[in-house]
């Protein structure tokens, strides 16, 4: 099973949609709300986001070693071999 980590913001509507996508497809994921983390963890997260995706935009989804930035259900589905990703 794919390991999914998602960096999100509690203020971001597209992050909520991304979480819903995985929930509706019964896929387990770990999500970390950047804005609710302490300063130290934020530093680590932002460094990782820049390193892996060159951006701090959210939702920032990591599926195994594939990075998908943005709410992109078709791309999530492709990375998970779920078919066309239509909701």
């Amino acid at each position: 099973m794919a390991k999914i980590v998602m960096y999100t913001l509690s203020t971001c509507p597209w992050c909520k949609k991304a979480k819903t996508f995985f929930e509706e497809n019964d896929i387990t994921f770990e999500s970390i709300d950047y804005d609710l983390e302490d300063k130290e963890s934020q530093k680590e997260i932002i460094t990782k986001m820049k390193e892996l995706g060159g951006t701090t935009a959210t939702p920032f989804v990591i599926i195994d070693d594939i990075v998908i930035v943005g709410y992109r259900p078709k791309e999530y589905a492709k990375a998970l071999n779920l078919g066309d990703g239509s909701e």
Binding site: L9, T11, C15, A57, T58
Partner: peptide
Amino acid sequence: CPCQALPE
């Protein structure tokens, strides 16, 4: 912006 992580 509520959809971009705030840098320090």
